Amino acid sequence: MDRPNYITPTGYAALRAEYDALLGGERPKLVEVISWAAGNGDRSENGDYIYGRKRLREIDRRLGWLSRRMKAAKVVDPAQQEDRARVFFGVTVTIADENDNQRTLVLVGDDEADAAAGSVGWSSPFARALRGAAIGDLRRVALPAGEREYEVIALTYP
């Protein structure tokens, strides 16, 4: 990876929990089912065997991805941020557009971004435009619907 994979402690714990659940829970049970299905004879028309092998490949692929992401992760605790007057990783920022419509966003790691919940990935256009901004600063954000200007209204860190 050419840039660090910043992640909050909570986000890293979620990746770790998913990895442990797949490796210690779902995968062993699935291997057991596949082994049982393979012992039933003809594998070409055995749905349990065919589906089980397919699901096992999906789990192994996900485990590999999770492992790589955790290895590349740089855990950053937003509560330890020294400069709380500017937008940095982990901040909860309130912004307003030209029509005074306000939005509250939390800048988190890309692996823990959830736009519906207001969590925006660190390398998203919003986060890139807002980095380093202070209260009262105007920033332009290139969005699919066109470029918009936002004013930083409030900043809070955990």
Rank of each mutant, 00 (worst) to 15 (best):
S67T: 10
S119E: 09
N101T: 14
N99A: 12
G64I: 06
N101P: 01
A85Y: 14
T92M: 06
D111S: 09
D77H: 03
V91P: 07
L107K: 12
G118A: 02
E112G: 09
A116V: 04
D83R: 12
V120D: 00
L63P: 05
D100S: 09
V93M: 13
F88P: 00
V91T: 06
N101M: 08
A117Y: 01
M70Q: 07
A117G: 01
I95Y: 05
A85I: 07
F88W: 12
R86E: 02
A116S: 08
V108F: 04
T104C: 06
Q102C: 03
T94H: 06
P78D: 05
R62M: 06
R62I: 09
G118S: 02
G64S: 15
K71T: 14
K71P: 07
K74I: 12
E98W: 09
R84V: 14
D114Y: 02
V87N: 02
W65G: 15
R61E: 15
W65E: 15
R69I: 14
A113N: 08
S67N: 07
G109Y: 05
D111P: 04
R69Y: 14
V93N: 09
L107H: 12
A117K: 07
G118F: 00
M70R: 08
Q81I: 11
D110Y: 08
R86P: 03
D77L: 03
R68K: 14
I95G: 10
T94S: 10
R68Y: 11
R69F: 10
A113P: 10
A79Y: 00
A115C: 02
R84C: 07
D83A: 15
D114F: 03
R61Q: 15
D97E: 11
R84A: 10
V120P: 00
R61I: 13
E82N: 09
L63V: 06
I95P: 09
K74R: 13
R84N: 14
F89K: 00
A73W: 00
G121D: 06
F88N: 08
G90A: 15
S67F: 03
F89S: 00
A72F: 08
